[in-house]
Computed example of a mutant assay.
Amino acid sequence: MSERGYLIKNQQAVHFITFAVVQWVDIFTRKVYADIVINSLEFCQKNKGLKIHAWCLMSNHIHLIISTEEPNKLSDLLRDFKKFTSVKILEELNNSNIESRKNWMLWIFKKAGENNNRNKEFQFWQQNNHPIELDNVKIFDSKMAYLHQNPIRAGFVREEKDYLLSSGLDYYGNEQGLLKIDFL
């Protein structure tokens, strides 16, 4: 790992990407925050050349199998996605009158921002994306299974097709899920 975190060398290759909320705060248990992530992914698909091959949004992190085409760069797309969703989620959280964990979460995000010189005030996402280039079928199949079995391991569902916040429905339920999938 370099000083600037994990680097994506081949910007147009298919990658398995994972990033988490600072301190692993379980914010995506609320639909309003999960919707911001899903809507932002959809925007990136329509406007920034993002190809989503598989995805899974858990309570405090997201797994993606994604790629993009020239002239887009995956690292730029992820940077912009994380910045935009951070601002929107913090804005929604700050304006919430019903979020019971509001002060606690804002305190955590503020402390994380103060401890990271790359931020102005708050930090929502952890810095790294942990990219793994999926350059062979064995690695691809392994990451695809890991991603879709995450909600099962967490005890949320019994089968991959039953978890709404993933591409499990697309792959195992033969239906279209919340996001358009670019099958490989």
Rank of each mutant, 00 (worst) to 15 (best):
F124S: 03
M144D: 03
L134R: 04
N94I: 09
S142N: 12
K138P: 01
H148S: 06
I152W: 00
F140C: 08
N115M: 01
I108D: 06
I98T: 14
E92D: 03
G113F: 09
V87L: 13
K110E: 14
F122V: 03
A112W: 00
K102D: 00
F124A: 02
L106F: 04
K120W: 14
W125F: 04
S96C: 00
H148L: 11
F140R: 04
L134F: 02
K88E: 15
V87K: 12
E99N: 04
N97C: 12
P151G: 05
P131I: 03
F124Q: 02
W104M: 10
I132P: 01
L90C: 06
N117M: 07
E121I: 13
H130D: 05
H148M: 00
A112K: 08
E92F: 06
A145Y: 13
N150A: 10
E99L: 03
N128D: 15
N95V: 03
Q126D: 13
N117H: 13
M105Y: 08
Q123G: 11
R118G: 02
L93W: 08
I108S: 01
E114F: 09
I152C: 09
N150D: 05
A112R: 08
R101G: 01
Q149T: 11
S142P: 10
N128E: 02
H130E: 06
S96R: 01
N95E: 13
N128K: 01
S100I: 09
L106N: 12
W125K: 00
N97H: 12
E133M: 00
E91R: 15
S86R: 03
K111I: 11
E114M: 14
S86G: 10
A112G: 08
Y146A: 04
I132D: 02
N117V: 14
W125T: 00
M144P: 08
N116C: 11
E99C: 09
I108A: 06
R101D: 15
N128V: 04
N150R: 05
K110V: 05
H148P: 08
I108K: 02
V137T: 14
N103W: 04
N136H: 14
Q149D: 14
L134T: 07
K138Y: 04
W125L: 05
L93C: 04
H130W: 03
V137R: 15
A145N: 15
D135E: 11
A112Y: 00
Q127T: 05
K143G: 04
W107V: 06
I89Q: 08
L90R: 03
Q149W: 12
L106Q: 05
N115A: 09
Q126G: 07
E114H: 10
N115P: 08
E121S: 13
D141R: 14
M144L: 15
F122M: 10
Q123H: 11
I108R: 05
L90S: 04
K120F: 13
N116M: 08
E91C: 12
N150K: 07
N128R: 05
N116W: 10
F109D: 02
D141Y: 09
N94C: 09
D141A: 12
M105D: 11
K143V: 02
A112P: 00
I98G: 03
E91V: 08
I108V: 15
E114V: 07
W104N: 13
A112E: 03
F122Q: 06
Q127P: 09
F124M: 06
Q127M: 09
N103L: 11
M105L: 14
V137A: 12
N128P: 03
E133T: 11
E99W: 02
